[in-house]
């Protein structure tokens, strides 16, 4: 039998009217919350209350609510996606909090991610980085035979681990330098471990780093906060691989 503890919480929610507008914290009390709710369901409850009272609901991003799409994400008491390791905000449960607690809820803060409104940020910088080279330019045709291209198990594992990145941006939010290296390195690392990714390996890393720098993200100083915040546990080994590939590609690039 599961018990159902009820929680009373004080929320300090970041409100911001639009990009570049000055923001502020708004305080809300919520009572009678179920500990089985997800964090986003708790925000739904807040928004219903706000709408009934005639106020503006808090804008936040979300979609799948099962930890796979990368849409959700807020900074909860100074931790991107909240206190649980390898857990996206939508998968975080309210039982993680104590009744009577005060919770600060803030958007991802980075020059690369301008606030759209309240807790929602514009992560299209990631899309532009992907467009610069996060793909393989081959005509794939119909599905190939399963083992037509042999891939060593270890390579497949590392490619898959890197491919688990859902593009949520928590790494940028957690980084004291607002750097996007973990995300970019996950995309570079994913394809660098596969035979299909080899043809464009050099041009990809050069183009993606150039696109990343153009978006105003910071420079990595190897704090490794990104990996600790990442809901998919992407390893900083990928960042070393990106560095290695970038150095080699820059040195050996022709012309």
């Amino acid at each position: 039998m599961s018990t159902n503890r009820s929680l009373k919480l004080t929320l300090k929610v970041w409100r911001q009217a639009g990009p570049g507008a000055p923001g502020h914290f708004e305080t809300h009390e919520l009572d009678g919350l179920s500990e089985h709710m997800s964090f986003l369901e708790m925000l739904d409850v807040l928004n219903e209350k706000l709408v009934l009272e005639g106020g503006d609901p808090v804008v936040f991003d979300h979609d799948c609510r099962e930890g796979i799409c990368g849409s959700c994400g807020v900074v909860i008491n100074g931790r991107a996606h909240g206190p649980d390791a390898e857990t996206a905000t939508c998968q975080l449960h309210m039982r993680r909090f104590k009744s009577g607690e005060t919770i600060f809820i803030e958007p991802w803060r980075s020059e690369g991610f301008p606030v759209v409104r309240d807790l929602m940020v514009d992560r299209s910088a990631f899309d532009r980085i992907i467009s610069a080279g996060g793909y393989v330019s081959t005509n794939t045709g119909s599905a190939p035979d399963g083992n037509a291209v042999p891939i060593p198990r270890e390579d497949a594992e590392q490619a898959f681990d890197a491919a688990a990145c859902i593009g949520c941006g928590a790494c940028v939010a957690a980084c004291p330098n607002g750097a996007a290296m973990l995300f970019v390195s996950a995309k570079v690392g994913h394809l660098a471990h596969l035979p299909q990714g080899q043809a464009e390996r050099e041009s990809r890393v050069l183009a993606m780093v150039r696109a990343m720098d153009a978006e105003g993200f910071g420079n990595c100083t190897n704090h490794y906060e990104c990996s600790a915040a990442c809901p998919k546990g992407i390893s900083v080994e990928n960042i070393a691989l990106l560095n290695r590939d970038y150095l080699r590609a820059s040195l050996l690039e022709r012309g």
Partner: peptide
Amino acid sequence: GNRKARTSRYAVQPDHGER
């Protein structure tokens, strides 16, 4: 460059335990 990449400050200073 790193200061410019994070002009808006968090109210609760982020710490994920690796810094």
